[in-house]
Design a protein around this nucleic acid. Sequence first.
DNA 1: CTCTTAACCTGGACGC
DNA 2: TGCGTCCAGGTTAAGA
Length: 270
Amino acid sequence: MPELPEVETTRRGIVPFAEGEIIESVVIREPRLRWPVDAGLPGKLTGQRIRTIGRRGKYLLFETAPGTALVHLGMSGSLRVVDAATALKKHDHFDFTLANGKTLRFHDPRRFGSLLWAEDASRHPLLRDLGPEPLDDEFSGAYLRATARGRRVAVKSFVMNSQVVVGVGNIYASEALFRAGIHPRRSAGRISAARYQRLAAAIKAVLNDAIKLGGTTLRDYYSGEGAPGYFRQELDVYERASGPCHRCGRPIKRVVIGQRATYYCGHCQH
DNA sequence: CTCTTAACCTGGACGC
DNA sequence: TGCGTCCAGGTTAAGA
């Protein structure tokens, strides 16, 4: 479910309530997430102050003195600020109870999300090999072009590869390729420098636009404060199969690339 | 190395 | 109502 804009919106929603706060208790109700939750994790976090709440790709990073708790929302996860007395719902898998009376509550029906511990987050195996942040200056058309050299994979799969660049998931990959006028099936290694410049700019623009509107709510995404994202109404192609292209009016196509639904305009994208 | 595929899991929508 | 099928915002591990 959540891509970079949704994770960033979640982060911004919980920062005012949780950054700088003491974690009074950690309750794990369901440890069977994407990776089993370490039984020793509550003991490590309890009593610690959350120094910062950061983000790396789609991971939220709760940094404390002894280490960092990594939270990934997977496909269907959400992390929300609730009052301590808020009734539990099905699939509320863990809570961080804070000293200010608020609780960070993780909800995830499909359990593809995760809660992990790292003494040094940047060296954790799941973070160590990640590509650059798309909104950083080092992520550019030149970087994409150099990284794509010799690769034959479809460009859509290429930009969704977190070792190439983090945070670009299935919605924003289709959206960025539409904005850049690039066909999603084109081989990554056979795209010009000029077109990669357009693509890098399109990725930055679509992610920034989505963050401004609080992300995209299709089914079950809600921010840290429980608000839906309003970028859905700005989508040009995603889940618009057979609808008119916003540029040329021809019907948007839906195909499957790398097992994922992909939307594009056959006339505007080459 | 690069690339493809299966797998992890629940629930909602839809057809019969 | 129920049952089977398909689909869903992510990511890794295994295999070719």
